[in-house]
């Protein structure tokens, strides 16, 4: 494993990730990676386990088994423990048995350098666009509570405000920076969520169905926006999405899940012509 780590140049790596809820194996032995600068999409029909996988990466769920590494070092690790160990139906139960389990909180993972957006937009609704972005700077604070209260952190505050403004500039939101966040049109709210995630200075951006509820025009503009974000901020992106146009347009690689298992992986063109993927989406006639 140590050798593996030395040569691990990926931003995000999932190894043997399994999630079992009661008797149901929602994600089964999933291994995947996101390399620096890549846009990777995770797709699959409804109930395939995409969101479960996403929730494990972002620390919302603790996987039943497996290991997730961020920039070469393991951040999440678990093996079947307690009640679930007797009924564990996945694979590789012994692989991580003798290793320390790692189960960081959501905010810890964000601090490490991965930031996410939400499928159902979650903005700070009483705050302006600018404040929404500014709040995301809080985790990068270097001063303690008292220096913040007595305004001894003016330099830090000033640089946060400057960074937030320039972030709003690049994301095309500076015209609405003093508007209430939830008063923005839907498409701009999506953008703001991405801008807010970027404000935490991530190296990996995790987008949970960014085009959900969007019409084709909005989706097109979002596609261009995501591509531009990758270029300008140098972040790697992992996204879950149902809009195939968006996925095929911007993804470098695609992982396809079906019934919790990975059934295909490759570049968009390979995936489009993959028999198993087409079957998974359209269904197969049984004979």
């Amino acid at each position: 494993m140590s050798e593996n780590m030395l040569h691990d140049t990926s931003i995000l790596r999932l190894e043997n990730i399994t999630m079992q809820f009661g008797g149901v194996v929602a994600v089964d032995n999933l291994s995947m990676e996101v390399r620096p600068g890549e846009i990777v999409a995770l797709i699959g029909p409804n109930g395939a386990g995409k969101t479960t996988a996403f929730n494990m990466i972002t620390g919302v769920y603790e996987p039943t088994n497996g290991q997730i590494s961020f920039e070469g070092s393991p951040v999440v690790r678990n093996h079947p423990r307690g009640k679930i160990s007797k009924m564990y139906a996945g694979q590789n139960a012994d692989l991580y048995k003798n290793k320390e389990t790692l189960s960081p909180s959501v905010d810890r993972l964000t601090a490490l350098g991965m930031a996410r957006t939400f499928q159902n937009i979650r903005l700070f609704k009483s705050r302006t666009v600018f404040e929404n972005v500014l709040i995301a700077k809080h985790l990068r604070r270097t001063r303690g509570f008292f220096s913040a209260v007595f305004r001894l952190n003016r330099d830090e505050e000033a640089s946060w405000r400057e960074e937030s403004l320039s972030l709003l500039e690049t994301t095309g939101l500076s015209a609405v920076k003093d508007e209430n966040a939830v008063s923005l049109p839907y498409g701009l709210q999506r953008r703001l969520e991405i801008a807010r995630a970027l404000a935490t200075r991530p190296r990996l951006l995790l987008l949970d169905e960014p085009a959900a509820g969007m019409n084709p025009q909005e989706t097109d503009s979002l596609t261009a926006f995501i591509a531009r974000i990758r270029r300008e901020f140098g972040v790697s992106i992992l996204l879950i999405e149902h809009h195939m146009n968006l996925v095929m347009d911007i993804s470098d690689r695609i992982y396809v899940l079906d019934f919790g298992r990975m059934i295909a992986t490759g570049e968009p063109r390979e995936i489009q012509n993959n028999r198993r993927v087409i079957d998974a989406y359209l269904g197969v006639e049984e004979n």
Binding site: D107, F118, L123, F124, K125, I135, A148, N153
Partner: peptide, 21 residues
């Protein structure tokens, strides 16, 4: 900045945590 974090928690706990609070 701590007060802003408090307000973020009030507005949306899940989002606040995802923003590293």
């Amino acid at each position: 900045t701590y007060g802003r974090a408090f307000i973020a928690i009030r507005d949306d706990e899940i989002a606040a945590e995802a923003m590293g609070i």
